[in-house]
Design a protein around this nucleic acid. Structure first.
Lengths: 334, 334
DNA sequence: GCACGAAGTCGAAGCGCTTCGACGATCGAA
DNA sequence: TTCGATCGTCGAAGCGCTTCGACTTCGTGC
């Protein structure tokens, strides 16, 4: 392993000069800097973790991504990838924490490895990790907005507005009875923030528009789609529009409705809240509010990096929902 | 932050005694050890990364999981989770590296953070990361078996045997014309190890049994399933059995065949190589060779930890394929 | 021509921890 | 009783790096 003294010797300067030349924290003559840089390059010098010890900036972020039951894996994965990629762009690596020891894991990560900041996903309204998080004096960013966000930095899609946007769209199209097919029950039982906010927005907007509305957690298993479709139609005969906030169910549910003889959108309008590419999977492309997992991850990391630099950042950043009309929604005809 | 001197002061001993008491590397009287442990507990002491600097064991593993096009995300995620979980059980954390800078990332990880060992997934037959890996003198484990595995430690499902097992099973059932629906083309273009080995096993066994066989890369998009089903039947009129090694395509492809009027297994036997729970997704549960992602991740970490401890480990570990008969295969009747 | 500040460099200290070499105490064996 | 071995503990060194406080040159203004 090539160390800073090796570089110093080769460049004919002292270690501290190498440090300054490489970090730019003190003025160094062009001549010297060039020699140092050349030496570093020739030797393949890469600074060692000791940097963190000696007061250098830590360059690892911890990502707490508990993969809990009921979350759609590909979406989480996209988030993870965008986090890692963005972190790399800022010259940081990512330490991955999962379910196990969620709370203790945070503390451990903070001082065991040279973790500079924390990123939490799958945030619950009353997330048990928050007290620990507040007590740790490390910058952190939540991907998701808990009930009490005071003093925390949060980013998320504005799920409440997303729910409202769906209902507004359907109300404008003249629909009077709408249903939300949401995440699996366990997601609501945990009071997962995003699911809660979306449902809240959906219900509120429906009430405001005077629509009849109902909410149905959907199983994660696509095989349950046909049964669910039947149940919806049976329990709500006047139903003319469905909002699906459940990725694995979207395509099979659309198919199931068509199987039951409903034409989309003529007989039933379908909307979704999901990543854009999923919205085009069903036979009829689905009008949807985009779930920008990549953007969320990138934004979260950007904020965290800013906090690491001591730049003040907004407390809660909500990405405005983007609704894209596709072929699955139309004016109510029935 | 609580440091070792704090604990030492509170326990009324010197820092070195604390270190020894906690690590057990030298005999310490019960009395003293208890006091030290109590002090550490009271103060909430957790050792800092400096440990690595001073010659302690590094406790971070790097997981290089390039999420390349065409791989089935949920399977990778399962692998990742089992790696993280198992690593935690061994008191290690996991640094996640993705696509970007695959090769440089390895080197960086090794000396920037206190990474003790490396785990590579998505291994290609002639993986460009291998030279770098060999030059780094850090223990590593590949999840996947490249063409030249000499001097490396690899773990994987025995995909070759898996391919053979499928064909053997079908041959025993009297099938004479079989097809393999494989991973997306890009996976083969990269010469991804697992896909290659499975195809190889499939083809070899088919030849040995004198079966007519064909191989068809399958798109990742479920929507392409109906077309693919038609094409298969059209190009191979005598086809009576299909092996699917393509998770997202399994259910839609089964459905597509049934849609075309084929009864499974009466008219067409279907097999899969996939995680067990996916095999039960299609209407007719599919006879399958299990893809034990959890086991693979756990095993890989176990091996890596053993290597970190200096224990010799086998060069290549191949998990024997486990074939489970379900309702989708039967004796050829046609 | 001199004092003074800026530019450029260096040496040394210290980050939190482990580990090596001592050192006193205790104990059994001679 | 004495000697050596063992046990339990401590102090100090050092891991690779950053940073602070000098110190030495210069160039500039008067």
């Amino acid at each position: 392993m090539v160390k800073i003294t090796d570089v110093a010797r080769r460049a004919g300067v002292s270690p501290s000069t190498v440090s300054y030349a490489l970090s730019g924290k003190r003025p160094i003559s062009d001549e010297t800097r060039r020699r140092v840089e050349a030496a570093a390059r020739d030797l393949g010098y890469r600074p060692h973790a000791a940097r963190a010890l000696a007061g250098g900036e830590p360059n690892v972020l911890a990502l707490a991504a508990p993969l809990r039951a009921g979350v759609h894996v590909p979406v989480v994965m996209r988030l993870v990838v965008s986090v890692v990629t963005t972190a790399r762009a800022h010259d940081h690596d990512v330490l991955l924490l999962t379910q196990e020891e969620a709370e203790a894991g945070l503390s451990r990560a903070v001082d065991t490895a040279s973790v500079g900041g924390l990123l939490l996903t799958d945030v619950e309204l009353h997330d048990p990790r928050l007290p620990r998080l507040r007590s740790l004096d490390r910058p952190s960013v939540l991907i998701g907005v808990p009930a009490r966000a005071y003093g925390l930095t949060c980013v998320d899609l504005d799920f409440r507005a997303a729910g409202e946007a769906c209902v507004n769209h359907l109300a404008e199209l003249g629909h009077r009875t709408v249903a939300l097919v949401g995440s699996p029950p366990e997601v609501y039982l945990r009071r997962t923030a995003y699911a809660h906010h979306l449902m809240h927005g959906f219900t509120t907007a429906a009430t405001r528009h005077g629509l009849a509305s109902s909410v149905h957690p959907g199983g994660p298993d696509p095989a349950t789609a046909p049964r669910l479709a039947e149940r919806l139609l049976h329990e709500h005969p006047a139903l003319t529009a469905v909002v699906v906030h459940n990725e694995p169910l979207l395509a099979p549910l659309s198919a199931a409705f068509e199987h039951l003889g409903l034409r989309i959108p003529a007989d039933l309008s379908v909307m979704a809240v999901c990543p854009d590419d999923l919205a085009t999977t069903p036979r009829v492309p689905v009008t949807s509010v985009s779930l920008p997992a990549d953007e969320l991850g990138a934004h979260a990391v950007d904020l965290l990096i800013r906090k690491l630099h001591g730049t003040p950042v907004p407390e809660t950043t909500l990405l405005a929902p983007r609704l894209t009309e596709r072929a699955s929604t139309s004016r109510r005809t029935a």
